[in-house]
Amino acid sequence: MLQISCPYCGARAEIEFRCGGQAHLERPGPHDQVSDRQWAEYLFYRDNPKGVSLERWVHRFGCRQWFNVARSTLTHEILAVYGMGEQPPQLEGTKR
């Protein structure tokens, strides 16, 4: 069970959170200007890094705020926590 630092509430147990999957996905739109390929990329194609994974989490049973997490898929170490809309910090092994 991870310990995740909510940017607002501080370090809390993983069971208070929910993972929302890969961060920094850009929703293409409007709908009538999006190709099938673009839409499929947005919906289904995900990074599967051995190393730093950028993902978004919500403090579901806390302040209900969403934020981004940079987490190592090898060690589960959380390397950074940053707000929604913010760019990921420079980390070794981060896919740009």
Binding site: G20, V58, Q65, M84
Partner: peptide, 13 residues
Amino acid sequence: ADNMDEWLQCEWP
């Protein structure tokens, strides 16, 4: 309610 929060905070802030 969770979905609404997610869309508002992540997609349409």
